[in-house]
Design a binder for these strands. Sequence first.
DNA 1: TTCCCGAAGT
DNA 2: ACTTCCGGAA
Length: 214
Amino acid sequence: MMQQSFQSIYERLYDYYGPQNWWPADTPFEMMIGSILVQNTNWRNVDKALSQLRPHLKPELIHEMPVDELAQIIRSSGYFNIKAKRIKAFMNWFKLYNDDVGEIKKKDKKQLRYELLKINGIGRETADVILLYAFDKAIFVVDAYARRIFYRIGFDMPAAYDGFRMEVEKELPNDLELFNEYHALLVQHGKNHCKSSPLCNGCPLNAICEQRLT
DNA sequence: TTCCCGAAGT
DNA sequence: ACTTCCGGAA
């Protein structure tokens, strides 16, 4: 594998799509709720659920809300019964810090990741997007898009989540803005060109991709 | 019918 | 490793 490959892919995507300024949420709290809602779900459906939830989108109100009521409000995001429980589990952890994002941000990345992964419903990917976009920790998010894009390019990536993540991280500077933009750009690219049925015509990665069709 | 920025249960 | 959870748009 070429050296600087992950860096050059980032640059190609950045040049093509421009800065993404993610995550699309008004507050860190909304971002964290959204990260649970978007698990294996189209963002359009998550956006609908967040619109329904927005009047209640304050920690105190979610704490008070019965889980069944929460489930109905987030219905359009799919898996709503499970996701309502997961949000509640997350809230119980959030409460330990008095619902204070600033307090949590003081903790170091490794410890924080460990804590997040103990929450029922927070797996590696969700933990990492929360670390990155709510708590400002530099980390590479391995999602379905990243796997698909790098696999199609022709990289021999590890199947395991953390193996994949560290393979990318070891070639990149430890820069928060870089990881922030990189994940956003991969998502953008996965939606616009590198879809399950790829649209290779005009793809910004054609020059370096093995799977290019046209 | 397919696919969608997964995670837990078995 | 396989199944379950699930609505909504294409």
